[in-house]
Design a protein around this nucleic acid. Structure first.
Lengths: 229, 229
DNA sequence: TAGTGGTCTAGACCACGGC
DNA sequence: CCGTGGTCTAGACCACTAG
């Protein structure tokens, strides 16, 4: 039977973990490995490319393939969508827009989004609830150029988060987590004491043409961000 | 000239973002696309496979390839290695083991690592410094079965973090970030006021055979966890 | 400059799974 | 059933770069 590229990958990983190939080692080149294992070079290439992407190997033309000293392990985080987070826990999702006003983008947000001049925007503050309990409170600025129509949507069916995901699904951006003390005005919404430590997420989103939105999310006390390796 | 698979991928992504292929749409099959673009099916396959892995497309045999309704975007986080974090910022790395004792693994840590019975272990508490300033303080339990020799290393050259990375490089585990108030005994090490909000990382590491270690890291105030999409 | 990985090609077979 | 994506193959050319 023919060897699949996953078989080749597994065999290579076995040799790494069994220290038959030790960190820093040059491993055989693709052609030799293909010979030894009895498959085409393309199959070996795909297997080793996969291990390199996963951080186990370091490959360079002419220099060959080496086992990494310290495998560069990466954790993946599904980009958080509050409604999905809540529903995934089997809880009832709800939200409430507490505050909404149109105004030019303030200086701090302009800087975050790399914008200058007078930018038409809208500020929306929203409380998200899980089974009726406060889950997170977000303070969001939306650029109307990047999200046309946002200011005319009543936001009674879709939350700002869902609206923007649906509309500006194809975007790039940054996520920035930190710990902060809950400000007094947010504490009331989150039903906790002012000054309690909470996780804060600062996020910027850029569409293909325009910046779309920047938001600060205050999670309720006890929120955890879990990553699996 | 020949079309590379990245060109094909870019063209497909352009069509998605330009809504020429809209969410839910069935896109042409590989053979047709290869014809249209003037390349081999293998090239189209690699391009579309890449977009599927990135969450833009949903591919199934016989059912064909569809544009995802809501692209499943993922953020990647390089698993933090404190020394590398500090050095990447151009700062001087240093550490200091403040406390070290051998003892059976306590109940809380046994639960975290799915262990029971009496487990030989060692507790190490370490302060990490960037340019002489407190960067993080970790409280770690190491299972000696999973990290043989750890208790005999003086930890004068390699920090516990580095030692375990080097020794138990090939591992799985979980990362769990939360916000917490700095406990009084940690505040002294981090040179901040007790009760200040800080990012806390709880991590468990499992080797191929045995659980290796569980650790709680208190980051200094102001620490940010940045992810790029 | 020569060795190595990166990639394209054309053809083939197969597994999956709508129909 | 039979269309679709998943993969293997053998060969080829090329880009990069260490020596």
């Amino acid at each position: 039977m023919a060897l699949g590229w996953q078989d080749v990958r597994d065999e290579a990983l076995r040799r790494i973990q069994a220290r038959e190939w030790t960190p820093g080692d040059l491993i055989p080149n693709e052609a030799d490995l293909a010979d030894e294992l009895g498959c085409a070079r393309g199959t070996v290439n795909r297997a080793l490319r996969d291990l390199a992407e996963a951080g186990w190997l370091d490959r360079r033309r002419k220099a060959g393939t080496r086992v990494r000293q310290a495998p560069e392990r990466r954790a993946q985080l599904a980009i958080p969508l509050i409604r999905q987070d809540i529903e995934a826990r089997g809880q009832q999702f709800a939200f409430s827009v507490t505050d909404r006003q149109s105004a030019p983008l303030p200086a701090r947000e302009r800087a975050l989004l790399n914008l200058s001049g007078e930018i038409p925007a809208q500020r929306v503050r929203t409380l998200y609830l899980a089974d009726g309990q406060p889950y997170a409170f977000e303070d969001r600025w939306v650029c109307l150029a990047g999200a046309p129509g946002f200011d005319r949507d009543p936001l009674d069916r879709l939350s700002p988060n869902d609206w923007l995901v649906q509309f500006a699904a194809f975007s790039r951006g940054t996520l920035d987590y930190s710990a902060a003390a809950v400000p007094a005005d947010v504490a009331g919404h989150l039903d906790c004491a002012a000054g309690e430590p909470v996780m804060v997420l600062d996020r910027c989103t850029f569409g293909p043409q325009h910046p779309v939105t920047t938001v600060r999310v205050y999670h309720a006390p006890g929120h955890r961000l879990r990553l699996e390796i």
